[in-house]
Design a binder for these strands. Sequence first.
DNA 1: CTGTGTTCCTGTTCGC
DNA 2: TGCGAACAGGAACACA
Length: 290
Amino acid sequence: MPELPEVETVRIGLTPAFLGARVVRLEARRPNLRFPMPEGFAERIEGRRCRVLARRAKYLLADFEDAGTLIMHLGMSGRFTVAGGGKPGVFAHETSLAPVHDHVVFHFESGACVTYNDPRRFGFMLLVPTDDLDSHPLLRELGPEPLGNAFHASGLAARATGRTTDLKAFLMDQRVVAGLGNIYVCEALHRAGLSPRRAASSLARADGTPSPRAERLVGAVRDTLRDAIAAGGSSLRDYRQADGAMGYFQHTFTVYGRAGGPCARPACSGTVQRIVQAGRSTFFCGRCQR
DNA sequence: CTGTGTTCCTGTTCGC
DNA sequence: TGCGAACAGGAACACA
């Protein structure tokens, strides 16, 4: 379920295995995922130490000294498992991992072994010079991190001015804000009490300054993501202690996937409905989201 | 430039 | 129970 909170949870979960650790062997078992695997991918990373494991939007960024930064994207179905070197765990949303979909395996000097599994292969890995990271086409156009200071109502309103597209599509646009996907857009809009069908331009007043809706939306996006990351973090601890599935997959959503159910907002008597926008499911309460 | 539809791939769920 | 259809968290790309 890789939107920003899941990718951040994966980053935290992989940090003990990656950070400061040397790759002694890297298996690339397929010539491609979504894109062809990087030229000399395994050879360039083998023997290198990971200096930084960061996240930008839904991308994981592993900086290997003298090799460059490995950009990893989980697509729809990508997941990592960690074995050996101390703390095992599945940083993913399902418990059954077919070995035929184990596409990349990192073997670390510590004995830790990290496997990337991705049935749909919408994920990818690219190795780019670290100095070129910010100018890389995949990252260059990304909007602000929603949990950072650069994400604010006035910036959101500026981008929304004159846009006739609806709020759902606007927030899904990674150039507007980086890291939201279908689920968390639905969740944040519900928290903000805003309809996904509302015009994006209604976040701005005529003079381009933010409407109160924009302020509410920024707060709702932040709160929604913070809560989800907290739930992901606790699920990692749970997983390490027990045999169960990842806790964050048990993480229940307020509106997503709840068509026909009651709106969870206190004192709202509405029913969650499902509509399709731009070919994707949207869940919302037509009563309290306006 | 803007908005919309298609496409990549496999696995799971749903309705008959 | 079986089976085809619909659907699934992303995002690059083509096109009107």
